[in-house]
Design a protein around this nucleic acid. Structure first.
Length: 921
RNA sequence: GCUCGGGUGGUGGAAUAGGUAGACACGCAGGACUUAAAAUCCUGUGGACAGUAAUGUCCGUACGGGUUCGAUUCCCGUCCCGAGCACCA
């Protein structure tokens, strides 16, 4: 009987589904384990072989943990709101509700084929009102809270009102952007609307005016992580800066906690580093400089991380957008400054970013006074200073900062080095090392000492304060589009008011036109009856990350109608033990989720401050594209190695028309009518295609569909092959070349159980030592591999073990049964089949992971009293018995061992030809 | 420019509390079975040299140094590749 994977897989899929084998519930008698995949966006293209890589890995781990006796929560769902469905709706007029539903059905079919052990009763979908009700609910909570920086916690806005009532906002410890200061009396005199305006500056979810990333093509605002190098991540459209009133989340209030919280997490260093960069903490001093514009005197704040270089300051620079520009420009320089400002305005964000080496700037005519030396420092304006960071103004230390240096060289400003012996004739000296000079009270100190001393002195003389800045900005939360969660907000006399919780979910209405207006007005503005008790509802919707920020909590208690997650469910499942997903979410979803979770933690709705304990980033599976070469202006194609003789154009060709880089010419002709009459210049009677490793995508015709692989080899082969391909975290091209090897392994395994006629070979004999050794070595290896996520080497270990057992003609029940359990996380279908053929009740998922017994693989230990250079005992650990003489010879042959004879206990290994001997002296 | 990874056969990749480098798989070559093919099985497979042969010797983990009895592994320097950040003061 042959290994009939398609029948086996079909049989077990329906068994698992009918018996709800993987259904879980809270069970206090068992330890819990939560394994989560980053849920997919169900696109119209369906899954390709790259998508399941992480799902397979997490499924192996989840199944393993189950065998180890854990109560495993392993759910799946869909991140279904988003731009592509809406873009599709704009093009075709099909409502996103419909296309999303179709895509989800397709995804589910594909996922089901791969035999994942998900508890499908917990399936969620972010566009489902029973789900997004809780997204809206969290938003209301954020609207209703402010951030108290004294206790570092979100607090109800009512508390803030009371504080204002009692003592105004003068000594308030809050994260805010309120520019007014007021007393209790003034507060009480404010009108309700004025009060609301002020409170808005303190809310964690707030409506505020800022520069936003506006994408005219998409007709919407985007978050910082949705923009890369001035273009939208989705679609690659130009993004410009525009000042707009938008909903925002005060993520910046949590910057420090987001940074500190990273420390204990079991995430990769590179990912933590990415988040650290994104949060961008910098410590330094905020200092006041007295500036004089003609006769007018001001004090201007600047921020520096290098207060030790204070005596190297030779000029000041303002950002072009800084409010100081107007105040400090003298009439004499007004014209030049205006010219410069208009020049800066013509540059796009992108140009400003790419032309970083070009030095531009203009003098304001004003001077600042050095707080210690009293020297006059000219105040310049330059685009290299950012308005959005620090105070939008800097003290320039050309000797020790490369940008200041270039600027000083260009405009011939003085450069004063303040570190002994540094050479600043060619470039600035930026290293934070050396001894200070030319620096008054700091002379002779190291840079490290000077930084501390400078801040102390500055604080003592009340010139400034220690200060920490973060690069992390508040998240812009409005999107001018349709396919997202509606805001539970209505406007009463222009004042944003929260909808009562009892009105949730506020469901997304059906609309006729999905086309954005282009003027910044959202599609919902055209919805009928989009109001609450006659008041207009907010027309923007929430961004993609809204729905994915707390989905891991909802899985704990997906059908709860009264809460996002019940306290009991949250107490039991706590947080995610293992999270597997792509690195592309490093500065998006993974920051927002952590923020969201911390907020809910502050409010006491969740018991853990961090959502994801351990995180693994699976690598991308790239496609291997094939090319044909068309001779320009002809319909003739030339084979790869002859193409250099012609002027050719490289054209992607569907990889399904190519085998081993050989083009199937007939199929190619039929592929596209344009090529029906194509001519070919062959080499060795073949057309050889070129190839390249690229992203797997429809447009490159290099997509491999897992359904096809399943049909040809089965899901078990696909699962094992994806693991065998290489280390999980590494990106690698899909390459079917090795898949036969894995498939062959499963067939060989099958043959340990059955002969060709299908008669069972299984015997009840007791295993011998050699067989025990094979088995227990495998148990140890598989356990280690799974714990280390080194799934590729486990596949090899299985192959070796099965080959060895086949070599010994071992068909013993006592060996094969544990082998099947070990294999079940990797190849669950065949394991399930063999498990029941061994006479067990389904399912192998309920089996116990075999216990490793080191006795079976222990090498025999021979203890030799070897007389050597006096009285020494060598304890020799080796599998093969060697004669005493052989050992002595081996040890003596290594003359250099003499060095160690005086020391007490040294573990050493001596190599005898053919053997390794570990010796304890 | 800065930060973090990483460089091992024809290919994907094994092996690092320092100890027989190249597991396993692909590919390739040869063989068995077959009328033939597919499938399956067996053998060989880093390089160079010597030998009829069994086998032996030398060189090999990007490059140059160092520590060590011994380095793919640890340290220093150089080169290359990948990822991320990037006028963030």
């Amino acid at each position: 009987m042959e290994y009939n994977f398609s029948e086996i897989e079909k049989k077990w899929h329906s068994y698992w589904a009918n018996h709800k084998t993987f259904k879980v519930s809270e069970d206090p008698t068992k330890p819990k384990f939560y394994v989560l995949d980053m849920f997919p966006y169900p696109s119209g293209a369906g899954l390709h072989v790259g998508h399941p890589l992480g799902y397979i890995a997490s499924d192996i781990y989840a199944r393993y943990k189950r065998l180890k006796g854990f109560n495993v929560l392993h759910p799946m769902g869909y991140d279904a709101f988003g731009l592509p469905a809406e873009q599709y709706a704009i093009q075709t007029g099909q409502p996103p509700q419909l296309t999303t539903k179709q895509n989800i059905i397709r995804y589910r079919e594909q996922l089901d084929k791969l035999g994942f052990s998900y508890d499908w009763d917990r399936e969620i979908c972010t566009c489902d009102p029973t789900y997004y009700q809780w997204t809206q609910w969290v938003f209301l909570k954020m609207f209703d809270h402010w951030y108290n920086t004294e206790v570092d916690k979100a607090k109800p806005i009512e508390e803030l009102k009371e504080i204002f009532n009692r003592r105004g906002n003068e000594q308030i410890h809050a994260a805010h952007h309120c520019e007014k200061s007021f007393t209790a009396a003034q507060w009480n005199d404010f009108s309700e609307n004025e009060k609301e305006d002020i409170l808005m500056c303190y809310r964690i979810a707030y409506l505020g005016e800022t520069f936003v990333n506006w994408c005219p093509h998409l007709g919407t605002v985007l978050a910082n992580d949705e923009v890369k190098e001035g273009f939208s991540v989705r679609g690659g459209h130009l993004v410009e800066q525009k000042k707009m009133k938008q909903w925002q989340l005060r993520v910046s209030a949590y910057a420090q906690r987001l940074l500190e919280g990273l420390e204990p997490l079991a995430w990769s260093d590179s990912l933590k580093e990415m988040q650290r960069n994104w949060i961008g903490r910098s410590e330094g001093a905020e200092m006041e400089f007295q500036v004089t514009c003609l006769t007018e005197k001001y004090s201007m704040d600047i921020f520096t991380t290098r207060p030790d270089t204070l005596f190297g300051v030779t000029f000041m620079v303002l950002a072009p957008e800084s409010e100081w520009v107007n105040k400090l420009t003298t009439p004499e320089h007004k014209k030049e400054v205006e010219q410069y400002l208009s020049y800066v305005k013509t540059k796009t964000e992108r140009e400003r970013m790419t032309e970083t080496h070009r030095v531009t700037g203009v003098f304001t005519g004003s001077y600042a006074t050095h707080p210690f030396t009293g020297k006059k420092l000219p105040v310049w304006i330059s685009e290299y200073v950012m308005a959005g960071y620090g105070t939008g103004a800097i003290m320039a230390v050309p000797a020790h900062d490369s940008r200041d240096y270039l600027f000083a060289k260009h405009f011939q400003l003085p450069i004063v080095p303040i570190i002994e012996g540094c050479d600043v004739s060619e470039e600035s000296f930026e290293a934070k090392e050396g001894i200070l000079c030319n620096s008054g009270f700091m002379n002779g100190m190291t840079v490290e000492q000077a930084i501390v001393a400078a801040i102390e002195e500055v604080e003592k003389q009340h010139l400034g304060v220690r200060k920490t800045y973060y690069r992390l900005r508040d998240a812009i939360f409005s999107r001018q589009r349709y396919w997202g969660e509606p805001f539970p907000i209505y406007y009463e006399d222009g004042i944003a008011k929260p909808l009562p919780e009892s009105e949730l979910p506020l469901t997304l209405p059906h609309i006729d036109s999905f086309q954005p207006s282009g003027s910044g007005e959202a599609p919902l503005a055209g919805a009928k009856d989009w109001n609450y008790k006659g008041y207009p509802l907010e027309t923007c919707t929430m961004p993609g990350f809204a729905g994915s920020s707390a989905y891991y909590l909802r899985y704990m208690d997906p059908h709860n109608r009264d809460a996002l997650v019940s306290e009991e469910a949250n107490q039991y499942w706590q947080n995610v033990d293992l999270y597997i997903g792509g690195t592309e979410h490093a500065t998006g979803h993974l920051i927002y989720s952590r923020f969201w979770n911390k907020f809910l933690y502050d409010l006491g709705y969740v018991c853990r401050e961090e959502p994801f304990k351990k995180l693994i980033n699976q690598g991308m599976i790239q496609g291997r594209s094939n090319f044909v070469y068309r001779i320009q202006n002809t319909n003739t194609f030339v084979s790869l190695n002859l193409k250099d003789d012609y002027e050719t154009t490289e054209i992607h060709v569907d990889i399904n028309l190519v085998e081993n880089d050989q083009l199937n010419i007939e199929a190619f002709k039929q592929w596209n009518p344009e090529y029906a009459n194509a001519q070919f210049i062959l080499e060795d009677d073949q057309y050889i295609c070129g190839w390249a490793v690229e992203k797997m995508s429809k447009s490159m015709f290099n997509v491999v569909n897992p359904d096809d692989i399943c049909a040809q080899y089965g899901a078990d082969t696909l699962r094992m092959y994806e693991m065998f391909l290489g280390p999980l975290e590494q990106s690698k091209p899909w390459d079917t070349n090795g898949i036969d090897g894995v498939h062959r392994f499963l067939r060989r395994l099958w043959r340990l159980f059955f002969d060709k006629e299908g008669t069972s070979l299984i015997t009840k004999e007791a295993p011998d030592t050699e067989e025990q050794k094979i088995l227990h070595r495998l148990i140890k290896k598989i356990e280690e591999d799974i714990e280390n996520f080194s799934f590729n080497t486990s596949v090899s270990a299985f192959m070796i073990a099965v080959n060895e057992l086949a070599g010994l003609s071992c068909h013993k029940h006592a060996v094969l049964e544990p082998l099947v359990i070990l294999l079940s996380p990797y190849a669950p279908h065949i394991a399930e089949e063999l498990w029941s053929l061994l006479g067990n009740a389904p399912s192998v998922a309920n089996a116990k992971f075999p216990k490793y017994n080191p006795e079976f693989i222990k090498e025999q230990v021979f203890e030799y009293p070897v007389s050597f250079n006096g009285k020494l005992r060598f304890k020799i650990n080796l599998a093969v018995d060697l004669s005493k003489e052989a050992i002595e010879q081996a040890v003596l042959a290594d003359e250099r061992i003499h060095k160690y004879t005086g020391e007490k206990e040294i573990k050493r290994t001596v190599v005898v030809p053919g053997k390794i001997i570990n010796i304890v002296i």
